[in-house]
């Protein structure tokens, strides 16, 4: 998602660069009484002169602009998980962060060692860390508590700059 957003932004940036240069060139050519070069602005001007605000074509154009803008805003403001997690200050003048995926694997491995768990997966967001785990024990309550305690200890060990809310979901796995 993050990579896709960067590709999208690179595409938009390229469009602005090329579009701006082409428009500037077209204006200069028009000032020199030369015809259109790449943009058929004479036809566009003709269309804008003969098309009314309530014409279907104009409405389609406005809807397209509105839709593109809304899509862009949605993509940019969609909450994404951070790519890295800042470490708390304390290393002198060195700022540091941890790769999120590595933290997820590490937490999943550490928490998965809790007695009573058969498997654990960690998902780290900007505010919450969620553990989803399976237990073979008949009583999951104590396992859930042990998992929560272990998660708290391991998060403390990582010394992240921002404390994360813990969500632990231990499900009982039935063996058939």
């Amino acid at each position: 998602m993050r990579l896709a957003n960067r590709v999208l932004c690179a595409g938009l940036a390229l469009a602005l660069l090329v579009g701006g240069l082409v428009v500037a060139a077209e204006i200069l050519l028009a000032a020199l009484r030369r015809g259109p070069w790449l943009v058929p602005h004479d036809r566009w001007q003709q269309w804008a002169t003969t098309t009314t605000w309530s014409d279907r074509g104009a409405r389609v154009l406005f809807l397209a602009l509105l839709g593109a803008g809304l899509v862009l805003l949605t993509v940019e403001w969609w909450r994404r998980r951070p790519s890295s997690l800042a470490l708390a200050p304390g290393g002198g003048e060195v700022t540091a962060d941890l790769d999120r995926r590595g933290v997820e694997r590490w937490l999943g491995d550490r928490v998965g060692r809790v007695e009573g768990l058969s498997e654990a997966r960690a998902e780290v967001g900007s505010r919450v860390v969620r553990i989803r785990a399976d237990s073979l024990d008949a009583e999951v309550g104590p396992v859930q508590q042990r998992t929560r305690d272990a998660l708290g200890r391991h998060l403390e060990e990582l010394a992240l700059a921002r404390s994360l809310r813990m969500k632990v979901d231990v499900r009982q796995r039935r063996v058939s």
């Binding site: 999208l8 932004c9 938009l12 605000w53 104009a58 409405r59 154009l61 406005f62 809807l63 397209a64 602009l65 509105l66 839709g67 593109a68 803008g69 809304l70 899509v71 862009l72 805003l73 993509v75 940019e76 403001w77």
Partner: peptide
Amino acid sequence: VASILGLLLVSAGGYGL
């Protein structure tokens, strides 16, 4: 930057509509 562009597009499209 993308949000500014998005807002400009929404404003233009919304006004026209």
